[in-house]
Write a protein that binds this DNA or RNA. Structure first.
Lengths: 288, 288
DNA sequence: ATCCATTAATGCAAAATACGCATTAATAAA
DNA sequence: TTTATTAATGCGTATTTTGCATTAATGGAT
């Protein structure tokens, strides 16, 4: 059952004239005649009532004309849709990202994506540091934006941004600017810091920071969630080190003191992921 | 775009293995490989991600698998339906019939039809005598059951039944049986008769009846509608001549006196109507 | 009634397409 | 490194489709 045959049938069912139809669909009358005949044989029914003079739809032919028209346009639409999937213009990507950039980098990226591919569906999720790579490998997410490098085989990474670390203190705190900081004064503070994960490069940078001041911080509380940390600092329970991306969040009553340490933001994806949607998004993100 | 190709694709999308799939669909692996390739070329997209070792659906392939499965079963259903139309097992016939047989012959015919072709839709209509042939020719009805012969070209007729005429009188009327009738006593009656249509053979039979008694009846009222006539007779407004099929209607308070005149019932259809539904119904009606 | 123009079907040879067999090339596992 | 597996491909053959020319049927015109 060739769809082309059905198209020939539909053309003939409009014209009800072999010669005119044959010309319209760019084949000869004999070819058309035989195409219709094979169609009838294949279906085991008569489509047209015809003598050498007149062509007329049978009831079954009339029925099939109506139904096939619908089916063909459905199929046409499906193929169109599939081509868009192929080109990565449609489909779904699930992206995990750290909370820190939800008010800065993420809006930029999402704006680019929706501008370039308005039909694309993006799902944003937040995933604990320790689950990021696992989720990526298990196809629970397609892209992971992290502050940590990784050396997993099968996962590729690329740096897309970097921001400074900042000391976060309440507005009324004695620390007002970088020059106020000293090992002695810092030592006296209570810190709220992220969980010290093994192999987390972000964690390592923070440790390097304290090493530069040559002391071990008094950590009052560990938390992986920036918004929690900010709330605690605002209540005066301690001070924190955070990427200065958090400045873009609502942070009334807090002071961000930039530190000379940078933290990278990387984008991670499966090396063997050939979904064209992914390729399009990566291209977009790396574009500038 | 051959539907067979799509079937091959669907088989492969289940198995994800060329050799096994090829065996299952009874072609060689090379043929299958090329069928999938042509399908991909035709659509302008990739259906499977494959190296020499693994076969895996692309996002577009996954999408098409789901959609095509639905489309194929729809098409299969449509073809099945069309075949039933072809065989006359489905479809619609519109049948016109006289009121007189709606309680006798019609139920018999309809019972036969629904038993033989349960999927068939029958529309029953009643059409004035003068419109019957016109409606038939104009495709407003497909079958006309009449009491009149016709000699129209393009219309074919066949007698399917005949019943007696009967004199219809109120129960308390002096006429109790055929022997009570005489020209003299009949002459004194007021009659309710059908409209005297030109060329109506039913009309002619009734005229022949009165001729046999050698008088012209005193017609109180003309009506084409049997149920009207019966109501009037029941009220004592006159007596009537009707086919004795009316005895099967609710006719309390009435007496039917059979007369030695018969009226035929014919079935009429378009000679050039090749709708298989019609052929099936005619065959059924003529069967016994 | 007869002829003519129209038009769907068909015989035939050529072209296009699909197929099977055998082989190749890539790759994962041993 | 070797081996077994497996999708792709070259090639000759078989099948299908096509176009050209012709035939046969039919409605309309004279």
């Amino acid at each position: 059952m060739d769809l082309q045959r059905i198209k020939y049938f539909l053309a003939l069912s409009e014209q009800l004239h072999y010669w005119k139809t044959a010309e319209k669909v760019n084949i000869t009358q004999s070819a058309l005649s035989r195409q219709i005949q094979s169609l009838e044989n294949e279906l085991g029914l008569q489509l047209f009532e015809r003598n050498k003079r007149n062509v007329k739809l049978t009831p079954a032919g009339k029925f099939l004309k109506e139904k096939w028209e619908v089916e063909l346009s459905e199929i046409e639409y499906i193929h169109q849709f599939a081509r868009q999937l192929h080109l990565g213009e449609r489909g779904t990507v699930t992206i995990a990202h750290p909370d820190s950039i939800s008010a800065s980098l993420m809006p930029d990226i999402l704006a680019k994506i929706t501008a370039a591919f308005p039909q694309l569906q993006v799902k944003l999720v937040q995933v604990l540091y320790e689950n990021q790579l696992e989720f990526l490998k298990n196809y629970k997410i397609d892209l992971a934006i992290t502050r940590d490098m990784n050396s997993e085989p099968g996962i590729r990474s690329k740096k897309i941004y970097s921001d400074h670390l900042a000391l976060v203190v309440p507005l009324e705190h004695a620390f007002k600017k970088f020059e106020d900081l000293s090992t002695k004064r810092l030592k006296a503070q209570k810190f709220i810091l992220p969980t010290k994960d093994e192999g987390s490069s972000y964690s390592e940078i923070i440790q390097a920071l304290f090493k530069s001041y040559d002391f071990v911080p008094d950590v009052f509380l560990h938390s992986e969630f920036g918004s929690t940390i900010i709330a605690l600092v605002r209540k005066g329970l301690g001070i924190a080190i955070l990427p200065d991306s958090y400045m873009h969040h609502q942070s009334l009553g807090l002071r961000f003191i930039p530190l000379p340490f940078k933290t990278d933001i990387l984008i991670n994806w499966r090396a063997d992921d050939h979904n064209p949607v992914l390729a399009n998004i990566l291209k977009l993100v790396f574009e500038n």
